[in-house]
Every structure is written in structure tokens, then in C-alpha cells.
Design a protein around this nucleic acid. Structure first.
Lengths: 110, 110
DNA sequence: TATCGTACTTCGTCTGTCGTAGTAATTTGA
DNA sequence: TCAAATTACTACGACAGACGAAGTACGATA
């Protein structure tokens, strides 16, 4: 399990990646993160929904209501062109970050 | 330049790595981070000193005064065995984190 | 003598995460 | 058949870590 403190800077990126594959909603995104990470990272509900708010405020995603006629109404989110650009930036930054952090990490293949 | 939000979870690890190579003090650590990262990451003073406090409180480092007879007195820090163990853990976690985040990153070699 | 570099310290603010709890509908299972 | 689990959120408040701004203190250099 990965501690949230460590992955913290990438929560928004993770969400954008998943929206990149098509519009989705909270519960589904949450399950996708769990599955794709093979249970190694589970994003807390409150963290997820507050990330949605932040991303929408920044214009990186847009929300709309689903037309479910059953169950609780879902709020769907889709990525905007500006969100795509931001995601791309973050991907590039990730390559740099990996490189930098690696310089402060020792290998312990004992 | 790497945003602090992204590297945030590794500030303590970075400091421990540098102390791993021998006792040191704030200003030196700060310069070492800058150099080793080739200016790609600069840890803010306040962040650095508050990290020292936290690490000391957790027993991962110990402080002692230098015997400078000139200039402002330095507070040196050395890593403890418990700090070594923690650093090792963090290195292992980093391998996992890298692997997980990579799953949410696209390659843009366009 | 003034400024630059070294080496911090204090204080207050802000952002993001998270625990707790609650709402509301549907599905499953004993 | 009725309770519990699952789906799908929302609200609220606490807390930790990063950081800007400012200040202190000393030595060396120009």
C-alpha cells in the first residue's frame, strides 16, 4: 500500500488519466484506481470528490448529470482541452521528478 | 523545475539520503539538494528546517552543535539507526510508487 | 561602511487529505 | 421479507506540511 503523502502530488493526474479514456463519475473512478493499481493505492472518497471540485474550478474538467432514471443521480465528469494540456504537462513533469528523486534513492538488492 | 507538491512526500527521504553520507547542517543540505538535482529542485528554507524538527521528533535524526569558533553556530544532524531503517523503507516504497504512478502516465514522444 | 553570503528562527497562512457522519436509492442473501 | 451491503454521493471540521515574509546574527569582501 502506498501512503497518500507520497502520491499526493499525483491525485489530479491520476483522475485526468482515467477521464482521458472517457467521461466517468466518482464511484467508477475510485474503483478504476483501485483496480489499475492492483489495490496498491486506494483514493479516499473525500479526497476524490474534493479533487473533482478543484479540477472543475481550474477548468480541467466539466461536469454534467447522467440521465439515470433509477438509483441515485450521478455526476459525470469529462476532461476539457485545457485539462488535456495540463495532464500532458504533468506527465512530462513526472519524467523529471522520477529522474530527480532517483538520485536520492539507494538500491538495496541485498 | 519540479513543483513542491509533487516531491512533497520525499522531502524527508531526500534529507535522510544526504545525512546518510555523513552529518551535515541546514545550509549545506540545502546546497547539496540544489546541486545533486542540477537546480531542478530547490527546497525552501522553512520546509527544510521544519523537516529537521519532524525527523528529530520521530527519532530519525539527532542534532548536535558544531564547535565553530567563528560565524554563526551551526546545528548539525546525524542519521540514527532508526532513521536508516526508515530511509530504507522509503526507498522500497519509492519503487512501488514509481510503478503505480507509471500506470497513469502516457508517453508523449511526439 | 555597506553589502553579500552564511546559518538559521518565528509567525501566520493556505492547500490538500482525511475522519466522521449522514442521505438516498438499489441489490443481495438468510 | 427484511436487514445488510453496495452504489453514489455531500457536509463539516481537523490537521499536517509547505511556504511567504520578515527578522537575527555573524564574517568576509569591495
Amino acid at each position: 500500500m502506498i501512503s497518500s503523502d507520497v502520491i499526493r502530488g499525483y491525485n489530479d493526474t491520476i483522475i485526468l488519466y482515467l477521464l482521458h479514456g472517457g467521461a466517468s463519475y466518482g464511484y467508477e473512478i475510485s474503483k478504476n484506481i483501485k483496480e489499475l493499481s492492483e489495490e496498491k493505492y486506494i483514493m479516499k472518497e473525500t479526497t476524490l470528490y474534493s479533487a473533482f471540485d478543484r479540477l472543475e474550478k481550474n477548468g480541467y474538467i466539466e461536469s454534467f448529470y447522467g440521465d439515470e432514471t433509477f438509483g441515485k443521480r450521478r455526476t459525470y465528469y469529462r476532461i476539457t482541452p485545457s485539462g488535456m494540456a495540463y495532464y500532458k504537462e504533468k506527465c512530462e513533469e513526472w519524467e523529471l521528478t522520477k529522474d530527480v528523486i532517483n538520485r536520492f534513492i539507494k538500491e538495496w538488492n541485498v
